[in-house]
Design a protein around this nucleic acid. Structure first.
Lengths: 343, 343
DNA sequence: GAAGTTTCTGCATACGTATGCAAATTGAAT
DNA sequence: ATTCAATTTGCATACGTATGCAGAAACTTC
């Protein structure tokens, strides 16, 4: 009942040819005559032979495996990205090996070690940073890294993000145009470039009109933290009339608190704007105005960067920023005559 | 700038021992003297040596890779399960290789072939069925399979589900006790055992009280299909006063239609009950009454089954059903004195 | 049909590790 | 010190595949 592996040697024997011939038939671009290919494929088919990827990778140095490091899948943005990444890579013959981490350096380091043990051809980190030591190790091992939705200064790391600065600014302009005067921000985790950049862009946008946010709290990209922040900001008498929340995942928590705990009307009493445009944002229950991170294009950029390094030996580090439109929906007051970018 | 692999041979040379000695130091349970271990570990450390998992698996026949086949991650139940599965397996030294499929046999067959090429130690399919031919191939290859959240009659396939029959019945009883008289069902995909079992249990529960559902539509586990079904069911004059929706993901779509398109009150006009208890179900915006699939225990059962086959050579096929409680929330009328199972 | 060119094939070896076997070392017991 | 057992080590080989090299075969061209 144990497995009965069929190897290229078996096929060779059955077809009456050499093992190398079999190998060549299954290696795209190798030199084989049609006759040979026929013979071999027939034998292979009868035996149910398929090349062993692991053995192959031992010799080619290519495993066809991409390591994905991710901290949590609760924020819908990430499963969505994972699905798209996996599908896109699959079309190129690669597959994703998943590594869950908690977002501290020790955990990332440990996991990344295991990752390299698998001889992955490349690494994608989703919303996870890397220590410099680690970046050095990957670089030394010749394994390209793309930070997906996270920036970092290291000169060895590719990165793909949305244009968070521009996005933050656009949201500031939108809220100002809507006539809001007391504008707050529940920010993304300050330990992340995305959180910092969105805040910086947002502040810059307000500052251009001589405005300052009435409050700015780190929501840590967590529902609970964001909810607590919302309670703090909006319980008092002199509450803000608008809030930009650092991502949709937190924005949902904030809206829940505003509506169901504090009985405030959104957008009547408070305008709420998020960031990401996850599928849930367009569901009528939230109908959230939010800045879209174009995950399709981000995935595309990630995959092409990675494959460029792996298959074409590229070695220019790319720091890609992709602009996204503001998705205007019902959770924030819409300024008179504001152009809808989606049109 | 290309990679400089350091192998066990390098370490052996540096430590002045044989390659086998190095191998043994890194093989748990092998016979090595403390002195030897010290020498080798020191050399390994200085060179930054780590064993090559792929080369190792070539010889041991164990890749430490588990293939996960999954159709879509939009339904929050699956990313949640994926996260838990991955974390649990990681603790045992295994990792998940992801394969996305569309849910038709051809796609599954193709992908499953690639899967076996990677010499995976085991396969988990999440909400995806398998052709018999495929089951046979996995079995012949000695690769254990666990169907997660999907049942199938094949005698070679392990499976872990919630008790869908009991769950469906429990929901019927709950709705009947609430005094509902016109009860409809927007069912899970009829091509899946979960969809069929939930419906069967639900019908049985109603039948026990001499009641029949006023309507029963296949929602295909898709938002759009479920929404269309809701429009059809609830647009007319003589609308149902309760609906059991085959999973939470569809139930959210149904609630959106009821509230925002048809301006009906939930649960005032219509009671809605879902199935899964994904995190979103407990958010106040939906506050969905739903039957919990205990994903923690389902994951635990999946992992222990799989590891039993892989590491202990178990070969009894397990068909595990796990009971879950009804999570009573605000989307359905609560019968007088109905016991809260969670207490 | 001979010479030259191109295409194809088999041989041998390599990838990085684990493991059976026998030799070498250690330790215990006399 | 000597014998015997137990432990540790190195040697050689195997896992399943890809590929450089040289020879064989096929095809051109005159």
């Amino acid at each position: 009942m144990r497995s009965e592996k069929v190897t290229s040697v078996d096929v060779a024997k059955k077809a009456g040819v050499s093992q190398s011939a079999v190998s060549r038939v299954f290696t795209p671009g190798a030199s084989v005559s049609p006759k040979m290919a026929d013979k071999v494929l027939k034998a292979a088919d009868e035996l149910g032979y398929r090349p062993n990827v692991l053995a192959r990778s031992l010799i080619t140095g290519r495993s066809k495996i991409i390591g994905l490091v991710v901290a949590y899948l609760e924020n819908q943005f990430y499963p969505d990205a994972l699905e798209k990444l996996s599908t896109a890579l699959q079309e190129h013959g690669y597959h994703i090996l998943v590594f869950m981490v908690s977002n501290d350096d020790a955990s990332v380091d440990k996991v990344m070690g295991e990752l390299l043990d698998y001889q992955v051809d490349g690494i994608i980190t989703a919303s996870v940073g890397m220590s410099n030591a680690l970046a050095a190790r990957c670089s030394a091992a010749g394994v390209p890294v793309v930070l997906f939705n996270r920036g970092q200064d290291d000169e060895r790391l590719n990165q793909v993000t949305s244009n968070n600065l521009a996005g933050g600014r656009k949201i500031a302009e939108f809220l100002l145009a809507g006539g809001h005067t007391k504008i707050a921000h529940i920010a993304g985790w300050s330990g992340s470039s995305t959180g910092r950049d969105r805040e910086a862009g947002f502040r810059a946008g307000l500052a251009a009109a001589g405005v300052e946010p009435v409050a700015c709290i780190d929501g840590m990209y967590k529902r609970e933290t964001a909810a607590a922040a919302a309670r703090e900001l909006f319980s008092g008498k002199d509450r803000p009339d608008a809030v930009f929340v650092g991502n949709d995942h937190m924005a949902f928590a904030v809206m829940d608190v505003l509506r169901f705990e504090l009985k405030l009307d959104v957008p009547g009493d408070v305008s709420v704007v998020g960031y990401d445009d996850v599928p849930l944002a367009s569901w009528p229950a939230y109908d959230l105005t939010t800045l879209r991170q174009p995950s399709n294009r981000m995935v595309e950029a990630t995959v092409s960067t990675l494959l460029g390094w792996i298959e074409e030996g590229s070695n220019d580090v790319r720091k890609i920023q992709i602009d996204g439109p503001l998705m205007i929906r019902g959770s924030a007051r819409i300024p008179q005559g504001w152009p809808d970018e989606r049109l």
